[in-house]
Design a protein around this nucleic acid. Sequence first.
DNA 1: CCTCCTCTTGCAACCGGTTGCAGCGGTATC
DNA 2: GATACCGCTGCAACCGGTTGCAAGAGGAGG
Lengths: 332, 332
Amino acid sequence: MTVTLKEVAARAGVSRSAVSRTFTEGASVSDKTRRKVERAAEELGYRPSLIARSLATNRTRLIGLVANNFRNPVFLEVFDLFTRVLQERGFRPLLVNLSTETDPQKSLEMLKQYRVDGIIIATSTLPPTFPNAFRKAGVPVVHAFGRFGSEAGLHIVGIDNVRCGEMAAQTLVDRGYRNIALLGGPRSATSTQDRLAGFLRRLKKLGLEPTDIRFAENYSYSAGREAMNALLTEKSVEALFCGDDLICMGAMDAARGAGLEIPRDIGFLGFNDMNMAGWSTYDLTTIRQPVRDIILQSVALVIEMVDDPNKESDTQPFPCSIVERSTLRPLP
Amino acid sequence: MTVTLKEVAARAGVSRSAVSRTFTEGASVSDKTRRKVERAAEELGYRPSLIARSLATNRTRLIGLVANNFRNPVFLEVFDLFTRVLQERGFRPLLVNLSTETDPQKSLEMLKQYRVDGIIIATSTLPPTFPNAFRKAGVPVVHAFGRFGSEAGLHIVGIDNVRCGEMAAQTLVDRGYRNIALLGGPRSATSTQDRLAGFLRRLKKLGLEPTDIRFAENYSYSAGREAMNALLTEKSVEALFCGDDLICMGAMDAARGAGLEIPRDIGFLGFNDMNMAGWSTYDLTTIRQPVRDIILQSVALVIEMVDDPNKESDTQPFPCSIVERSTLRPLP
DNA sequence: CCTCCTCTTGCAACCGGTTGCAGCGGTATC
DNA sequence: GATACCGCTGCAACCGGTTGCAAGAGGAGG
């Protein structure tokens, strides 16, 4: 059915090696041979089998793309970028959906069986057993959106969530809010813990304490909404720092449902600056995470490691920034 | 580095074939041999190379998953389902992002080079040159969300968009709307054209004509918003049938921005019933597309074709249904 | 015309599995 | 005890490429 090297070689009247060399970067072939081969290949519709090549070269140009959050639209932006960037650089993403999987070893082994050249884990809510398993994979692994310094030998690309927490506290206090709450993402996520730590530290430094601290069950609209509804029955707050934009939107709708006006009665600070944060219904003031930079660097890093397994590149956290919209009152 | 058949065979004191058979479904191995092999494999941490196996068996258990819309959150639901279902059935998705690609041949050839067992195209806005190219791929291709009957030899799984258009018209008229407009998705999409056709047909049958027909540039919030803003400066309408929920949300926000109240001043009918349609800010009455069923069937179909290339299964369009929320006035 | 060097080429082994086939030992049957 | 049959095993060829190596071709220089 499919055309192979041998047939092209026969038609072109050259050896199989000659054909192989014509299709491998930087191999030495004379123009004459190359032309003959290309002509024959063209006529037969030949395309080299990447499977066979992978077997021979021990390189697949496959990158495992592992994610566990297929509910949050921000991950669509993430996928879009990842796939594009990988494609551009001649790699292909082999997608692993971790949402159902509880055993890291299993997903990992699947990826290893496909002999992926590298793995990118894209999540900030990885169960703690996972990084460990992946670290010992014997394959370059990059944890995008991970926590710095958590696991030696696992490469991290992301932001400094402690600083982001501090930034959030400072931002709210600067605008005169005093009665402040935090509505975080899942409590188990390292990103949540770090932001909380930074948030509390800065508040304390400013002589304040949070009115309330609670956590949404996951990064979803409904979790944000529910958590906020619960909060509203218990306390009244002046401003909220949310675990991410999606949670924040849920919380805002809960607040509005309770008759509150934003930002007159209550202020909201989101996280991520996802696309939807700009929608006029929400028009969210939020902390922007440089998703694009994180992804570009993750891909660059993993490819670098594929090319040179001994390379020990270190990465620095990216800075975040406030995106000013209309859910907080302005600076005095 | 990685453990191979040969090493396991040596350690277990058997031939390579014995090892191979131990790891292939339904091969004949005695319990004694199997135990020896499994023990040796365990000790060495052996995992068969799917690359090598693929080469030998001419089966990769890789399914190309082709999409061109990485902006619309509904596709996250789609990806989630696809990856899960494929995973469950022992296949892995090789993701292709078509958003940048204009040449179908190129993406197709990449997939063929990886010798994917099958291809699922998940989009309703495929440029017309693509199906043709894919059809001749020599690989099972399923077009999820495609147009029925458009291309012989290309398997379609999806809905009957003409009927959906009719259903939309009927729904609006039933509720007493007369001054009705359509704000479709991209004009070039077959789904848009079909829904428009059905919509017009039913209106005509009911003795009506649409007040306005226009198209959003793509399936996005901002496109819906812009189109609606333009519409509002030109005409006033009583109810709108939108190309999808996302466009609809943009349009709703535009209407609200113009001071209209929903559904008192204007009614909206969406399409898809994406997750976000249930958000309280929008609470969209919409036509539900059975995404889950479509995906399950797409995967089942493509795997069926992989297992038996001669099988000619025919599929029927799935029915859609109205999901009643609060953006249309109730039936009288 | 000879020597040397460089560029190109083909041979053959290899990547890590699968599988048809023939041969083996063991058991059931007569 | 001979025969037939069955389940298991190993041999060796094969999947479709890559690549080290040795040898050939051709040109430059003397």
